[in-house]
């Protein structure tokens, strides 16, 4: 298993953490090619560790800053009789250093929740905080800056610009920001996704799995406060999907990142520290250390129940 084989090579603390997710099936069994251990502990692994010791429902009594938080948010599309309620009074909090899966049947509002949390979309009611910042108070420019500096995205498809090479895509956010990328960090991330020798290629010369791993690496290259992944395995075969989820898992464990993953794949959700189940725009369940069976069952029931 990816998790165990790599975790053994890195910081002892991560071995302890890794043990908690027996369900996680990410990564190739044979430990080939791209699966390389990260060269050393991430700088803020301790923060991830600390968060990990809290219970996932994130009691506010503890001195933890939520990486992202939604308070009573609602989102509707259309007008009049054609109104569709995508989110209904959702209150949820994402603790830093945690890997959260958002699952639910089609149309349950999980992608909308992600877009609202990431500041891609606005909410009709409620407040979204990224870190301590209320997104509604930001101008477009400030919001752009916030997205650029504090948020990473992985989309289902079309995450890369076809005209740029892999390496250029990877550094695009930093370039846009006019910043000099942190070479060491970028090299570590690239090494972790096993694309160090592919950086000169165009996206269409990469496999679907490589493209999505590149997108994930780009999301992490700027050391964002949160990485939002919207069905990143949706277009991948199961092995490539497992590799990508394994990488996201390790980015939490070894690099101390915070990941919010929207998925319909119970196996992917089972790699997370926590699963949120949405149905009809509401959070209907919120558990720690989900298993694939539980997620599949829960989503099926949510989809059936009106």
């Amino acid at each position: 298993m990816l998790g165990r084989s790599t975790r053994r090579l890195v910081h002892p603390r991560n071995i302890k953490i890794g043990g908690k997710w027996p369900n996680c099936g990410g990564g190739p069994e044979d430990g080939q090619g791209w699966v390389r251990a990260l060269p050393g502990p991430a700088t803020d692994v301790s923060a991830g560790g600390a968060a990990d010791d809290q219970h996932v429902t994130g009691s506010l009594g503890m001195a933890i800053v939520a990486a992202a938080r939604a308070v009573g948010i609602s989102k509707r599309y259309g007008t009049g009789a054609a109104t569709v309620t995508a989110l209904e009074a959702v209150t949820v909090e994402f603790v830093a250093g945690q890997f959260t899966a958002v699952v639910g049947p089609s149309g349950s509002g999980k992608s909308t929740l992600l877009h609202c949390l990431a500041g891609l979309d606005t909410v009709d009611e409620g407040v979204v905080y990224l870190g301590a910042v209320d997104l509604a108070t930001l101008s477009d420019r400030e919001l752009t800056r916030l997205r650029r500096d504090r948020v990473g995205f992985v989309f289902q498809s079309f995450s890369l610009l076809p005209t740029l090479t892999a390496g250029e895509n990877l550094l695009l956010p930093q370039r846009l920001a006019g910043r000099v990328p942190d070479r060491d960090w970028v090299d570590r991330v690239v090494g972790a996704v096993g694309l160090a020798d592919r950086l000169g290629h165009r996206p269409n010369e990469l496999s679907g799995g490589q493209q999505q791993r590149l997108a994930a690496a780009r999301a992490l290259a700027g050391r964002p406060a949160v990485v939002f992944a919207d069905e990143p395995t949706g277009n991948l075969d199961s092995r490539s999907g497992a590799e990508l989820i394994g990488f996201l898992r390790r980015s939490v464990d070894e690099l101390g990142q915070t990941v919010v993953l929207v998925t319909h794949d119970p196996t992917a959700a089972a790699c997370a520290d926590r699963a949120l189940v949405l149905a009809d725009g509401r959070v209907v369940d919120d558990i720690a250390a989900p298993t694939a069976e539980w997620v599949a069952d829960r989503v099926r029931r949510a989809g059936v129940a009106p």
């Binding site: 420019r141 800056r145 650029r148 989309f155 956010p173 920001a177």
Partner: peptide, 16 residues
């Protein structure tokens, strides 16, 4: 449109 929107997601502002 999608490419431009992606750039916006990755931190390009309107002026860029």
């Amino acid at each position: 449109t999608r490419e431009l929107a992606l750039l916006r997601c990755l931190g390009a502002d309107r002026a860029q």
